[in-house]
């Protein structure tokens, strides 16, 4: 049954994306390092995932029927940490311990350190294989839950990514959805500059994957694409999420320099000011929509 989102639900997911962005700015500013471009660009995707798509229970992180979520591009973990905290896995105040000594919020995620984290990751290319292992276990046992894996375009330079894609396609892993952060940047340059990934859709098709392309900043499209993937029974699905790195902070957008950079406190303040303007707009929209519902 297709998910139908109301305008109010859409606005609330947009508001959550904005909140996650503000969290990401606060976390990286607090420690003076960490990744920004990817986390900011994936805010809508994480909002949609954690607040609509994934079946999960923050009070029972090991619930057997939960959706599995593997973060392959571990460096964008600030946005996952923010989504986990906002879901209720741990206190929001803990977010600013990111990358600091004695923290559960490691610079790259570590399974076992923090509830809600399903894999250790960072070195690129390792996530899809682990998602495949989890998907195989589920299919063999007849478990109904779905396995999700977030990956980045830069990770497609890694050989292991293609090993995993080839395997998953050939095994028709219908319970696997990969979300691809197609933000066109990697650490040093734009992805198409030296080792172009295009034609990316053709590559996935050749590897026997079903492909859905969406605007990664449109929460409705994220939810609908993930929902659509549930109805594809002959193989795995990749949702290519076209996204703007650094989205929401105008001076960071589309600039590989902001993949990971140090924010000055002035820059952080400016970013938060930017985001609060958007937040106010969303709040007004929500108020209007609620008024309409009440009327």
């Amino acid at each position: 049954m297709a998910i139908v989102l109301t305008d109010l639900e859409i606005a609330e997911l947009e508001k959550m994306a904005n909140t996650l962005r503000q969290d990401v700015i606060r976390m990286t500013a607090s420690v003076g390092q960490g990744h920004l471009g990817g986390p900011l660009g994936m805010a809508e995707v994480f909002s949609a995932l954690y607040f609509k798509v994934l079946r999960h229970d923050p009070k029972n992180p090991d619930w057997g029927e939960r959706s599995r979520f593997i973060l392959s591009n571990g460096h964008i973990c600030p946005v996952q940490y923010a989504a986990l905290a906002r879901s209720g896995y741990f206190p929001v105040e803990e977010l600013t311990t990111y990358r600091k000594i004695n923290s559960r919020l490691q610079g790259h995620p570590h399974v076992g350190s923090l509830p809600g984290i399903e894999n250790s990751g960072g070195p690129l290319g390792q996530g899809i294989s682990q998602a495949v292992g989890r998907a195989l276990a589920a299919l063999q046992a007849g478990w109904k839950h779905r396995v999700y894996c977030m990956t980045s375009d830069g990770e497609h330079d890694e050989g292991q990514t293609w090993e995993a894609l080839l395997f998953a396609g050939s095994r028709h892993l219908r319970n696997l959805t990969v979300l691809l952060d197609r933000n066109n940047i990697q650490i040093d340059y734009h992805t198409e500059r030296y080792i172009p990934l295009e034609p990316l859709v053709d590559k996935y098709h050749a590897f026997k994957w079903h492909v859905i392309e969406i605007d990664g900043h449109n929460v409705r499209q994220v939810v609908e694409a993930c929902d659509h993937a549930n109805d594809i029974f002959d193989g795995p699905t990749v949702v290519i999420c076209h996204a703007i790195p650094g989205k929401g902070v105008d001076y960071m957008e589309n600039d590989p320099e902001w993949h990971d950079s140090t924010l000055t406190s002035e820059q952080a303040e400016e970013a938060l000011r930017n985001l609060r303007v958007v937040e106010d707009e969303i709040d007004r929209k929500i108020a209007t929509l609620k008024g309409r519902v009440a009327a």
Binding site: I70, N119, Q126, S129, Q130, V132, R134, F167
Partner: peptide, 17 residues
């Protein structure tokens, strides 16, 4: 297949299940 990196990752995923 001849893909030991993927094999190790699949094994990790199975173990985590």
């Amino acid at each position: 297949g001849v893909a030991e990196q993927n094999m190790a990752g699949i094994a990790a995923g199975l173990a985590l299940e």
